[in-house]
């Protein structure tokens, strides 16, 4: 960066020098010298620009190598770049979490009829049991009841084994958290590195703008940004982060209900 500043200072110094000559020649009425000074000013500007573009190209190249967006840059032909790798890793997270969600739901659905049977049969047996306690059953009905109780106890034991098995498997289906956590941490780290590299690129680009005398219409940029924001709102943005600390975002269903009722819903 020190080198950049020297370059800039040198550039300015030479421009000032030539400009002084230009005014001087014009005041003295030496137009030939003045035209020569104008040419020298142009040359200085061009040289500065070429130097800066040259340096930018080198820095751009090294930034790209650092980003490893293009695998051919660092002789890793055939191997995935870090960005491709990160994309694959995130797809893996989607895949693993989806598999875990489906596995959990399979197991829950498998449990539902077992619980349903236990609940239904226990209620029905309780009624008959109360009849027995009130001595309302005939010996024949009592024999029938003992058979049903026997079969119920057998099936309940079997079902509770199955239920406890399923609960264990539901627990195990959550093991994705460890794997996806590690993957997401790595990708987050990469994104932070990419961000700082991009920031460097922006700084470099602003240097070139300075040399070439290019300026951007800030209002136009801002208008475009707003247009993009409105479009993304219509497409949907997904879950909002730190919803409880933001004014423009609801923090839960109660907030939604309040907002809708304020609109006359």
């Amino acid at each position: 960066m020190a080198h950049d500043e020297n370059g800039m200072a040198d550039f300015e110094l030479r421009l000032k020098d030539h400009a002084k000559h230009l005014i001087d020649s014009l005041e003295r009425g030496c137009f030939g010298e003045a035209v020569e000074s104008i040419q020298q000013i142009n040359q200085t500007r061009d040289q500065g620009l070429y130097l800066e573009v040259g340096r930018l190209t080198r820095q751009l190249h090294s930034a790209i190598v650092k980003l490893e967006m293009d695998a051919s840059c660092n002789g890793l032909k055939g191997e995935a770049s870090q960005i491709t790798d990160a994309t694959q890793r995130l797809s893996y997270v989607v895949e693993v979490t989806e598999r875990a969600a489906n596995r959990t739901m399979d197991l829950v659905e498998d449990c539902a009829p077992l619980v349903g049977y236990i609940n239904y049969e226990a209620q029905s047996l309780s009624e008959d049991w109360r009849c027995f306690m009130r001595r309302e059953l005939t010996p024949e009905q009592f024999r029938e009841l003992t058979k049903r109780i026997d079969s119920f106890l057998g099936r309940t034991t079997e079902s509770s084994d199955k239920l406890s098995d399923n609960l264990n498997n539901i627990l195990l289906a959550q093991d994705f958290q460890d794997l996806t956590g590690q993957v997401i941490k790595r990708v987050t780290q990469l994104i932070t590195e990419v961000e700082s590299s991009l920031l460097e690129l922006v700084l470099m680009a602003s240097k070139v703008n300075q040399f070439a005398g290019i300026s951007h219409d800030q209002d136009e940029l801002r208008a475009e940004h707003q247009k993009n924001a409105a479009a993304s709102l219509a497409r949907g943005e997904g879950p909002q982060m730190r919803a409880d600390k933001r004014e423009d975002v609801v923090s839960g269903q109660d907030d939604v209900d309040d907002l809708l009722s304020s609109l006359g819903f």
Binding site: L233, G236, E237, G238, P239, Q240, A243, D248, V249, V250, S251, V256, L259, L260
Partner: peptide, 8 residues
């Protein structure tokens, strides 16, 4: 999951 007031 869309939770912006403007969206609601």
């Amino acid at each position: 999951a869309e939770a912006k007031r403007d969206q609601i």
